[in-house]
């Protein structure tokens, strides 16, 4: 049916340079150079914000003013196993697991890969710890994955 009609197959390849800003730069630099995961504390409500941000999303009024170093441990609040293939966006070959990971000592966490695990054994509430990549480039994949402990 669609063979009757002309289709133009093309690509919009648009380069971007996303800046990390003052807060993000510190976070990614510490991750890369010292394998440290840092969060940011709000002076008003004392929330520990992760991912770190310059302003508290609850209080707005003042800048966050304190870095908090995390243990890198946390627990899986939810997870999924991605079973379809889309190489343009996927960092590893599917099937692979991704989780909502609540990080200890924070009021947030990270969505990240759950690795070094039997995919059938992952459970909600499971304790996990960040495993750092050997080659770190100052991006979120400097944490290679979170591994059950």
């Amino acid at each position: 049916m669609s063979d009757e009609y002309v289709t133009l197959s093309t690509k919009l390849a648009m380069p971007y340079r996303y800046v990390a800003g003052v807060i993000g730069s510190k976070f990614f630099t510490e991750l890369r150079d010292n394998k440290k995961i840092l969060a940011r504390r709000c002076p008003e409500c004392k929330r520990v914000i992760m991912p770190p941000r310059e302003y508290c999303p609850k209080c707005f009024s003042v800048k966050t003013d304190e870095w908090v170093e995390l243990s890198g441990e946390g627990s899986i609040e939810s997870f999924t196993i991605i079973r379809y293939t889309e190489p343009k966006i996927q960092p590893v070959e599917p099937p692979y697991a991704v989780g909502v990971i609540k990080l200890d000592g924070t009021d947030g966490g990270l969505t990240h890969i759950i690795g070094d695990v039997d995919l059938d054994k992952i459970e909600v509430g499971m304790r996990v710890k960040a495993v750092f990549s050997d080659e770190r480039r100052g991006n979120i994949l400097d944490i290679g994955y979170f591994k059950p402990i």
Binding site: S78, I82, G99, N139
Partner: peptide, 21 residues
């Protein structure tokens, strides 16, 4: 782009996280 995109999440896998929760 900095904290989430590289993990490979999209509308379906994001929703899957919500469904399980």
């Amino acid at each position: 782009p900095l904290y989430q995109r590289a993990i490979g999440l999209d509308a379906i896998s994001g929703a899957a996280l919500q469904a399980r929760r």
